[in-house]
């Protein structure tokens, strides 16, 4: 079953850790560099994220995300290195292009921030079942309706892809060309989109009724099949993370 999720199955401590603690980790990892305003702290956060990801055995799943963002970061280096408004001291020249020290430093900061976001968010996304994350949020007061929309989207979009394939086949069966020049493809658009929209509408109404008869709008207090994932370990993690965060704030204020 295809699902729109980057989750990788596993049984590491990180897989078993509750989603909210992982969210707290993201908050702390993103806050620390801003609070301390230190490049070293930024790098330390990235390294700690990478270590945890390696530990959860999902490092290789980061490769596509990292390679994509590296391309983006390279362009940032080129643009800021050459055109940053405070550029003054030349760092090096490459043919007709001149790169400045200020711009390169600025790009480095942005780059580190991006990598930091990617590593800490990957830690959550790669080791958490989306449904667990949403359930944890619903327990903390997120509306079950929003929770439902978020979790069903992940499964229903791949289902829509297969519906699209059926519709394409049905129209090709009536002699419609779907491949070829841009004009041919544009002409094929309406015959494909029309049934798609109508089928989705019909399907959505049917599903809405099916949810109603399973007491989706019930005003009773909701229970959960799965036990909450929070454990003694979560508490330790959370305390440690909070201590680091508070420590950083105190250091910033006093120095």
């Amino acid at each position: 079953m295809r699902s729109l999720s980057l989750y990788q199955q596993g049984d590491s401590i990180l897989h078993k850790l509750d989603p909210l603690t992982k969210i707290l980790y993201i908050v702390v990892a993103l806050a620390l560099p801003s609070i301390t305003a230190s490049v070293k702290v930024s790098i330390a956060c990235i390294i700690s994220g990478l270590l945890l990801i390696t530990f959860a055995k999902v490092l290789k799943n980061m490769v596509p995300i990292v390679s994509f963002s590296t391309i983006v970061i390279l362009t940032i280096f080129i643009i800021q290195g050459m055109f940053y408004y405070a550029n003054e001291n030349v760092l090096f020249t490459l043919g007709p292009m001149t790169f400045y020290r200020e711009g390169m430093l600025y790009a480095l900061k942005i780059g580190l921030r991006i990598y930091n976001i990617i590593t800490s968010v990957s830690l959550l996304v790669l080791t958490t079942r989306p449904s667990d994350l949403i359930e944890a949020l619903v327990r903390k007061g997120l509306s079950p309706k929003i929770g439902y929309v978020l979790s069903s989207i992940l499964q229903i979009i791949p289902q829509m892809t297969s519906m699209m394939n059926t519709i394409t086949d049905a129209q090709r069966a009536r002699g419609m060309e779907t491949e070829g020049s841009l004009l041919v493809r544009m002409k094929a658009f309406i015959p494909l989109l029309g049934p798609m929209v109508m089928s989705s509408l019909v399907g959505t109404r049917e599903r809405a009724m099916a949810l109603e008869v399973r007491a989706f709008s019930s005003s009773r207090k909701k229970t959960f099949l799965n036990k909450p994932m929070e454990s003694a370990q979560s508490t330790i993690w959370r305390v440690v993370l909070l201590i680091i965060l508070i420590g950083a704030v105190i250091w910033r204020v006093t120095s």
Partner: peptide, 30 residues
Amino acid sequence: FQNPFTQITGSKLTVYEEIAFGLENIGIER
């Protein structure tokens, strides 16, 4: 209903959890 496909909630990953959907909504103990 008639159509088995649109009765699947789409928010649960296993058959077991899918059956639990209605029970969670009406607040049945674990």
